[in-house]
């Protein structure tokens, strides 16, 4: 019996997962009670004084509970996971699309004009390696709004991969295709939209994909700093509550949402891809 590679890979994945969860569950099992708790022990909250990482089964039951009612709102420190993720997604997408509005035209300019490339390159090289969180104090001071500052941080970290990839894609469009545009007397705008943009689109989309990945990484840290709402704040808040089950659950959710964001951009990328 020869199964497809996909099927065999799935089996290995499931086995690995089961192994991992099993070890995790086993290592963190609370000690079995040998005798009933005394009155004092009950008062002190249980027999074991040793803190343990919550078991996967606990995380799983919490996940069922949380995902069953993701949008409840019971005050500032108790909101459903859906609401928290919604806030984070809103910030990431706002910052990301604002960055796209700046990065794509500037990237086009840099890619088309050797002069602008040389002129802007020093700025890009210095600004690019700055950790986006380093902008936070300055953003808070200037914007005076924590919500907008978080969006600004996303904006500033999303801009570089998009800008650099757009410039690279645009400047590397094959001269043959540009010549086709020239021999057909296409104007600058038509050349940009009918030839250069479609030719550079896969490279640009790759930059956007990198950007949204970074933005999703950064939003967790940014929200831990600014607080209030969002998945980053949620993680930190649950840590302060010593609710590690929720922390592990939210870590998992961050991973899943990040994967979905990447998959969304990957499917857009497939739309603009072409084979030479």
């Amino acid at each position: 019996m020869i199964h497809s590679l996909k099927f065999r890979a799935a089996i290995v994945s499931v086995v690995l997962l089961a192994l991992f969860l099993g070890i995790w569950e086993g290592l963190n099992a609370p000690p079995g009670d040998t005798e009933p708790l005394t009155e004092y022990e009950k008062l002190m909250g249980g027999a074991s004084q040793e803190a343990r990482v919550p078991q996967p089964s606990a995380v799983f039951s919490l996940a069922l509970e949380e995902l069953g009612n993701p949008f409840y709102d019971a005050g500032p420190n108790d909101k459903g996971i859906g609401i928290q993720l919604g806030y984070s997604l809103y910030r990431v997408l706002t910052g990301f699309f604002m960055a796209a509005l700046v990065a794509l035209p500037v990237g086009f300019l840099v890619g088309m004009s050797p002069l602008m490339q040389k002129a802007l390159n020093p700025f890009i090289q210095v600004l690019k390696p700055i950790s986006p969180l380093a902008w936070m104090p300055l953003a808070l001071f200037i914007i005076k709004d924590s919500e907008a500052s978080a969006i600004f941080v996303i904006f500033i970290c999303s801009i570089w991969p998009m800008l650099i990839n757009t410039a690279f894609g645009v400047s590397n469009v094959r001269q043959d295709w540009v010549n086709v545009a020239r021999t057909h007397e296409l104007g600058h705008l038509k050349t940009a939209f009918q030839v250069i943009l479609p030719a550079a689109a896969p490279t640009i989309l790759t930059g956007m994909r990198i950007s949204i990945g970074i933005a999703w990484l950064v939003i967790v840290a940014a929200e831990m700093l600014v607080g209030g709402t969002g998945i980053g704040y949620y993680v930190w808040n649950e840590w302060n509550n010593l609710d590690l089950t929720s922390v592990i659950f939210s870590i998992l959710m961050i991973g899943i949402v990040g994967m979905l964001l990447d998959a969304a951009l990957a499917s857009v990328n497939r739309l603009v891809e072409y084979q030479e």
Partner: peptide, 20 residues
């Protein structure tokens, strides 16, 4: 002076736009 639609070009490597 400059390219014109009055002079069509067939390039050696075809130069078709691959996304169309």
């Amino acid at each position: 002076a400059g390219p014109s639609l009055e002079r069509g070009v067939v390039f050696q490597n075809y130069s078709l736009l691959p996304w169309r």
